[in-house]
């Protein structure tokens, strides 16, 4: 039940641990990018208040929803592209 196929049978210990680690790293990375990106989009840099105001909060929620959509969309587009070319990541290098 995993993005990276964790749970496939007959993996060695090291492989299973590496797979779980890779998935957690991926999720953390995605969470960090989400924070950085939506902060830039929704919260001005002058910090006149310490609390999120209503507008900022709503903006963050929508930004997060759009971020997940874009993530999914690009992921699908790359898979599509990669199938069309018959393999390869499509990311160039």
């Amino acid at each position: 039940m995993s993005f990276l196929g964790f749970g496939r049978p007959q993996q060695s210990s090291a492989e299973k641990i590496a797979a779980v680690e890779a998935e957690m790293r991926l999720l953390t990375e995605m969470a960090n990018r989400l924070t950085k990106t939506c902060q830039k989009k929704c919260v001005p840099n002058d910090y006149r208040e310490a609390e999120l105001n209503k507008g900022e909060s709503v903006c963050l929620d929508r930004c997060a929803a759009k971020f997940f959509d874009v993530h999914m969309k690009i992921s699908e587009q790359l898979q599509q592209e990669s199938q069309n070319r018959g393999g390869g990541s499509g990311l160039g290098f």
Binding site: V58, R62, C63, K66, V70, H71, S75
Partner: peptide, 17 residues
């Protein structure tokens, strides 16, 4: 590279909240 691509295209294209 995938994360960079998501970041870049999100920052460039998404502006309507």
């Amino acid at each position: 590279l995938f994360s960079n691509l998501v970041d870049h295209c999100f920052m460039s294209c998404i502006d309507d909240f």
